[in-house]
Design a protein around this nucleic acid. Structure first.
Lengths: 267, 267
DNA sequence: TTGTTCCGTATATTTTTTATACGTATACTT
DNA sequence: AAGTATACGTATAAAAAATATACGGAACAA
């Protein structure tokens, strides 16, 4: 019996339960019932299913707390993103202000998204009216979009630029949404996107100006024990990575030691 | 018949379907079957349920495309976060590198999280060994945690600091996880957290140094048409907001016009 | 002691989902 | 032109999931 044998809905519930144990340390049937709108009886089922998956360091019922308590050596059955973790730790009250920053504020035009998605799935080129943030000028150009990209904040896309003769990252908001969006088939296959299919391996260390206890905090925050933190990322996304992690800012807590780039295996 | 009448699992499926129509512009039964592991028959059910919810500008079947196509005036039945949108637009291939930045790299010690969660739910104070990033010094102090906070990247927490005599935001990674974490009941009730219960209304405009076409791109990107973008946020989170949106950086595309703070209603 | 709130288990019933079959329309291949 | 494949639709019986309900135990508070 593994997670994969379960239906999607129950798998989601067991994953939630797993996060409760990992991050809260405790879980009750009511947690499941409230979050997923299932009955207490079904939640009891899910607890049984979860416990049958855990062979070592399983959570145990604590009659005093009236709750299951995770073992101190609890091992999660699946990793969780910070957003997942927050979803478990946040004690949101009814319709008050949230305890998280507003995330949905970035905007994407549904029509632009649809046109791009279409061009990607049909492998077509389209004419977009694009405003450069460097020069500030707005001009039409033909591009062949290949993938959407997410930098954690907003959505970008990768496309072959016929104007530049190379692949570039584009920002949908810089496309004029009022345009007609001419579409055309590719007359020649697109060239290979080297930057996309290359992996940059980036080694980082706590910034040299930090004290040793500050440096160990940085290691803790980014989850590495040795000297260096190793990150693997598509070379085409390295710019977004640097910006998002604030590596080039004056107060940066991490600094790059070296970057190695190799052509990725497979896709 | 509304979304709320449905079970959680089916509601999730209809929301996914809604995002397909909104952002991709098309949807097939196979999309649902693949994403949620349901049968084609059940996916057909879901389509019927979805279409019964949509009264105006409903998607229609296109026999040529062999897919449902959203009406050009499609109105989503629920808002979606950028992460949700990306989840629909990304054409992830098998186990290749993702097209999104690594998000799970920030780390949180499960034991520290558990201790904090406990103190919050039981309303206790705890002794933490905390490293200041300003002074770099590490010292024990008593705090009474009240809520977890999410800045979009990592998780922080709000707590009353007995050392400072005021509420502050803390970063879990700066707590020494090896500590024993002494716990104690509150001897007096905590004071009112004014900054937490106040709303800052922030008005932003495109940075003055931008050209007018660049400024309209910025308006498009942040989804406002008028002169000013208005953001409401807990006053206690304003620091994170500024940092996350890069408002104080040299190249900032938005600048603050004014900030008004009022005591929040209710919670 | 009594009442409450957690936990557990078990059963019958209801709801959801699947498996399957059959029909229609479009597009592609032979 | 005929055949094949793949979308869509509907319908029904069977299987699986979830609910309602009942009963019992442990801890705790009034």
């Amino acid at each position: 019996m593994t997670l994969d044998d379960l239906k999607h809905a129950q798998r989601q519930r067991l994953l939630f339960l797993d996060r409760c144990f990992t991050w809260r340390g405790v879980a009750r049937r009511r947690d499941l019932a409230d979050r997923f709108g299932i009955s207490i009886a079904q939640a009891a089922n899910d607890f049984r299913a979860y416990l049958s998956l855990i062979t070592q360091n399983a959570p145990e019922y604590d009659a005093h707390l009236k709750a299951y308590v995770a073992s101190p050596d609890h091992q999660p059955i699946a990793p969780s993103s910070m957003l997942d973790v927050f979803g478990v730790l946040d004690t949101a009250s009814d319709d008050a202000l949230p305890a998280a920053l507003p995330r949905a504020k970035r905007w994407l035009d549904p029509h632009v998204a649809t046109v791009l998605h279409d061009a990607i799935s049909k492998q077509q080129k389209i004419r977009i009216v694009y405003t450069s943030m460097n020069s500030g000028e707005t001009a039409p150009q033909w591009v062949a979009p290949t993938r959407f990209i997410f930098d954690g904040e907003s959505i970008h896309f990768r496309a072959y630029s016929y104007k530049r003769g190379e692949y570039r990252n584009f920002h949908p908001a810089r496309i004029n949404p009022e345009d007609e969006f001419q579409i055309d088939e590719l007359d020649t296959p697109l060239p290979f996107d080297m930057e996309w299919h290359s992996v940059s391996t980036i080694w980082l260390r706590p910034s040299a100006r930090l004290t040793s206890s500050q440096a160990s905090v940085v290691r803790r925050e980014f989850g590495f024990n040795g000297d260096l933190l190793r990150i693997e990322i598509r070379q085409a996304l390295e710019f977004y990575f640097d910006r998002r992690w604030g590596l080039n800012e004056p107060g940066a807590r991490l600094e790059k030691v070296k970057t190695e780039t190799t052509l990725s295996q497979g896709n």
